[in-house]
């Protein structure tokens, strides 16, 4: 933007992106998986985090 002074770009090292990927995977497992990855235990995760899932607005049931 026009008021932004130039600041040096930084390269995020691989481990940074790996941590982000891990966090994304956790979000998916916690909030969205319905058995694709977790298989039959997905039902338990689903029931346990039922309210959080619904509140996150992810598809359910």
């Amino acid at each position: 933007m026009e008021h932004t002074p130039a600041i040096a770009p930084r390269t995020v090292p691989l481990w940074g992106w790996l941590v982000a990927a891990l966090a994304l995977a956790l979000i998916y497992l916690l909030a969205a998986d319905n058995g694709l990855v977790l298989g039959r235990s997905a039902g338990v995760v689903h029931e346990l985090f039922h309210d959080a899932r619904h509140f996150a607005g992810v598809p359910c049931h």
Partner: peptide, 15 residues
């Protein structure tokens, strides 16, 4: 479920 909902929401937030 309500307690786990709170825990889940905070864990989601951290991620």
């Amino acid at each position: 479920q309500q307690v786990a909902g709170v825990v889940g929401a905070v864990a989601l937030g951290v991620a």
